[in-house]
Computed example of a mutant assay.
Amino acid sequence: MALNVYFAAGKDIWPEYRDAIRAASAKRGLAVNLSDSAPDPAAVDYIVYAPTESLSDFGPFTRCKAVLSLWAGVERIAPNPTLTQPLCRMVDDGLTEGMVEWVTGHVLRHHLGMDAHILGQDGVWRHGVKPPLARDRRVTILGLGELGTSCAKALAQLNFPVTGWSRTEKAIEGIACLSGEAGLAEALARADILVTLLPRTAATENLMNAERFACMPMGSFLINPGRGALIDDDALLAALDAGRIAQATLDVFRVEPLPPGHPFWAHPKVTVTPHVAADTRTATAAGVVAENIRRGEAGEPFLYLVDRKLGY
């Protein structure tokens, strides 16, 4: 008997995911009845979900064994009081590789001072300023989940001394791992370049405020591909104007698209990128969805199950 899978992740991406999920399911020996139209909630076995969809009441889906998010971030669904089913976030190789490439590119951009040459095509021979070697430029990554850990390892391979910070204690070979409030202050003090890859929770809202920016070395760099709410915008602007932060590259914002009148657009020390650091890739994401359906049917633990107390 075919499993009923409701694709509640948006009409715009339905055509590309339809065949991919069906193919990934068939590869695992699963017969699925996949639909993006409003079904009988009591007949749905699994929901493939993204917050762009209007679905907000999960109560009627009494047979549903799991909600499988296509997004890595789940802050817009995890607090939903009607969601009593297991919730799985998206972790897939394509998304992780994309984030590693974006973060590594912008770390190297700031480390090497590329903007001075790319933007300064004005006939001035700027030979006097040389960057240090990577081994002399310290990088701190806030957040040591799948994305943060992968970025930390990639940067360590390039010889950057990498410090990672997480709320709970972790150990990663080649990475100096810190945790807790005291560990955060130390991690920031080591951050010649800071990369923020934490999820948005009550504990991380405005984590980077004036007090935390003051812990960082003078003239350091900030790269945020995590969540816009991690940053106190006014505190960042003040830190930029004071020279505490030399440059900031921001990919995520509290309101997206970033409003045209926002100060970040016009600030000479801010680079705005339009939430492109990492996207879910259809082929690999479909495999994760199908694998979790297989696990659910086999009675095996789900991959990337969200801890509702922590919010990720």
Rank of each mutant, 00 (worst) to 15 (best):
N159A: 12
A176Y: 06
L207W: 11
Y46H: 02
L68A: 07
L87W: 02
D279T: 07
W165E: 01
A286C: 11
R281P: 02
V5K: 01
A203G: 06
L70F: 10
P86A: 13
L178S: 01
N33D: 15
V124E: 13
I13M: 11
A242D: 14
R135A: 14
V48S: 05
G261E: 15
V32R: 03
H127V: 13
L258H: 12
F61G: 03
A2Q: 13
V100E: 06
A202N: 08
Q85A: 15
G183R: 01
H275M: 11
E101Y: 04
L207P: 02
L83Y: 07
R294E: 15
G148W: 06
P161W: 06
K269H: 14
L108C: 05
T273Y: 06
E297Q: 14
A277M: 12
T84H: 13
D36K: 04
D192P: 09
I47R: 02
A31P: 00
V139H: 05
G59E: 07
Q157F: 00
A26Y: 01
K27Q: 14
I231G: 01
P86E: 12
T201D: 00
I118H: 08
W102E: 03
K27G: 09
T84N: 15
V44H: 06
P217W: 05
K130H: 10
R227C: 06
P199W: 08
I77N: 01
A176P: 01
N33K: 12
Y312R: 06
G228M: 13
T284N: 07
Y17I: 08
D45K: 07
D40S: 13
E211N: 11
V255M: 10
I245V: 15
D40M: 05
Y17Q: 02
Y46D: 02
A266C: 03
D19W: 01
A242Y: 09
R76Q: 13
T249A: 12
L108T: 05
A210N: 04
N80R: 07
Q247L: 04
A238V: 09
A134Y: 10
G243W: 09
N33Q: 15
L250M: 15
A202R: 11
I193N: 01
V124A: 14
V272K: 05
R18C: 08
F58L: 10
L188W: 04
R135K: 15
P199V: 08
L158Y: 00
P274K: 10
G226D: 06
E186A: 11
